[in-house]
Design a protein around this nucleic acid. Sequence first.
DNA 1: AGAATAGTGTCTCTGAGACACTATGTT
DNA 2: AACATAGTGTCTCAGAGACACTATTCT
Lengths: 227, 227
Amino acid sequence: MPQDDAFSHPIATVDAVIFTLEGSVLKVLLHRRPQAPFENAWALPGGFIHVDEDASAEAAVRRVLTQKAGAHGVHLEQLMTYSGRERDPRGWSISVAHLALVPRDRLAFAAGPDAQLFAVGTLPDLAFDHARIIADAVGRLRGKGSYSTLPASFLHDEFTLGEMQDAYEAVLGTRLDQSSFRRKVMALEILEDTGEKLRDGARRPASLYRLRDGVRTFDRTLGASGA
Amino acid sequence: MPQDDAFSHPIATVDAVIFTLEGSVLKVLLHRRPQAPFENAWALPGGFIHVDEDASAEAAVRRVLTQKAGAHGVHLEQLMTYSGRERDPRGWSISVAHLALVPRDRLAFAAGPDAQLFAVGTLPDLAFDHARIIADAVGRLRGKGSYSTLPASFLHDEFTLGEMQDAYEAVLGTRLDQSSFRRKVMALEILEDTGEKLRDGARRPASLYRLRDGVRTFDRTLGASGA
DNA sequence: AGAATAGTGTCTCTGAGACACTATGTT
DNA sequence: AACATAGTGTCTCAGAGACACTATTCT
């Protein structure tokens, strides 16, 4: 315990695994590193914790999210912390990785050769231990997705049951039975009917719902992960 | 991202929430702090990460476990990382909290006014944000306990179904039906019959089982948390 | 009318819980 | 024989999955 402050401190960073849904495909935002180490390699958006500026690691991630993905007010949760002497050639480092879930159109980054969305199934080679971090993040998302409202974070505030089911299917990687899905969602009482309908073409309009706030996880499942 | 190394680094520490079962009561090991900050307050065992000595945060926790609890080779998992400017008066700090589950007789600490096991229901005032950390740890243990072999970490290598059920009941805070518990445990195929029997008194001897390794979590539950 | 998705009804199967019962050892 | 825990059998109920069906809108 508090011996003496003579120990040299590790490098402290944060990393963000920013997920989104693009055409019902689960994707992650990656940036190409502009400098060493791992110059030109793809990597997770991240950066040093600014002790003078960030109130916490989570605040540091929110800063990164805004600066590098143009996203704010999105679902953000801590994933895990990765640390050690070997993971960063610059020295003993500690990185607090977070999970961010963002609707596609709330992501604002300069898409191009240096920033891109990759489907989680086909990732390029990655800097540091970022492949491992993404694998853990996907595991968390798939696992927790089945008994939480996490997948709904990819949707707008108001959405139809069909859109909601699509999001769950994309996250869990399985097809779900429509009838069972609706029955279970309704039984959980996690939605609020807005009274409005979505009219978007040659078919029966669907009711628009909103997530009732406060609800995050439930004790039943909305479908098993087929990963 | 890697800008310049000119940022001052946070203080980096680890904390261990060491759980054990004493007389079917879930307890946590606390130490009294010998010095400021929070001198004389109860706190979780923990300490600075030694960059020159620890290969990772987990390694740092294992060192702390050995030094402060005499425990090694126990179940250890990362809980969460707590960080910020306010949590430690010495400055911006980051602490990687871990969960350790130890059978009572594998804990070797000098019990006395400066080190003690406390039932999780009746904790004293705590230093730093350690009350919050313990609350999170109890939440994790209770939650994950119902669908994992975590509670069995409190037992010896070989144990009876009765002992196993006791451990689950202590962790989940509920009584479980004996018949259902046995049926579910058997259906999960997580145990290996040693062929031996425990003879410990005036009653029918119970079979001794061992955990089959590799098994950590399952998709069904062994009982709901009654917290 | 036809296309397309929204939404309902219902059957079956499995697992969980409750609880009554039998078994087997020591004193 | 009494006792205490080990271990079994069985009934009932709720939720999940499968799937066939009906409803409503636009073109």
